[in-house]
Design a protein around this nucleic acid. Structure first.
Lengths: 109, 109
DNA sequence: TTAATTAATCGTAATATTGCAATTAAACGA
DNA sequence: TCGTTTAATTGCAATATTACGATTAATTAA
């Protein structure tokens, strides 16, 4: 079907999955790393930095924005992007909690 | 195209993306949480536990197995699954390193 | 106003993902 | 052996994702 049956899972499970999903493409990972590395807003040069067409980058930026991980502000003819630290932190905590699960004992395998 | 241009990204970026991708579906999140909760191998009852068809569960298990996050051992007519702790830990560290990026200063936004 | 620049959006093609019914394969018990 | 049980695989349909050319919208500079 191509459509996940979100209604049979918990809110938490759907949240974790959608957070992970937005990180599930190397272009978006690359964009995020670049924004962190620059440590400031990035106006324009994302298309040059990553080797994808302008329309494709714009689409990935839209997904990152819709998950709240980045924010963009219009600056003249260009748009400046940067990490949304509050939401990034929220995501980090949610995913870390999931990843930090541990088995106290591993009785069989 | 539907096909990610993996060749233009770094090995690390592709690794992070593929790890995140496998966590990007609530059914797989649910399976992993169940395996952690039970704290032991699970033989069979995954289909009852999660409300998806047997073929669908089997497919998700296959993806988790191919990423090395779980391992299954044949136990008579059924198959027992459990978390692969070494690989889980590896993934946790890789993703944590990515998520722990921080901005020392946020000069513009 | 007009041209130039930049990024979003639209439209489209190719591929991937999700889900399930049906079938197959493997192992056990009678 | 034969039926039963369990899970993998196959085949298919529906939807999602990725990518990009072309267009549009918005802003600036001349």
């Amino acid at each position: 079907m191509g459509l996940a049956k979100t209604e049979i899972f918990t809110e938490e499970q759907n949240t974790i999955a959608s957070m992970a999903k937005v990180l599930g493409h190397p272009a978006r990972v690359s964009i995020l790393e670049y924004l962190f590395k620059l440590n400031t807003c990035v106006c324009g040069d994302l298309v040059d930095e990553i080797g994808l067409a302008q329309a494709t980058i714009s689409q990935h930026l839209k997904e990152l924005k819709s998950m709240g991980l980045i924010k963009g502000s219009v600056e003249g003819t260009s748009v400046c992007y940067c990490i949304n630290l509050e939401n990034w932190s929220r995501m980090k905590n949610t995913l870390a909690e999931f990843l930090d699960q541990d088995l106290t004992s591993n009785t069989c395998c």
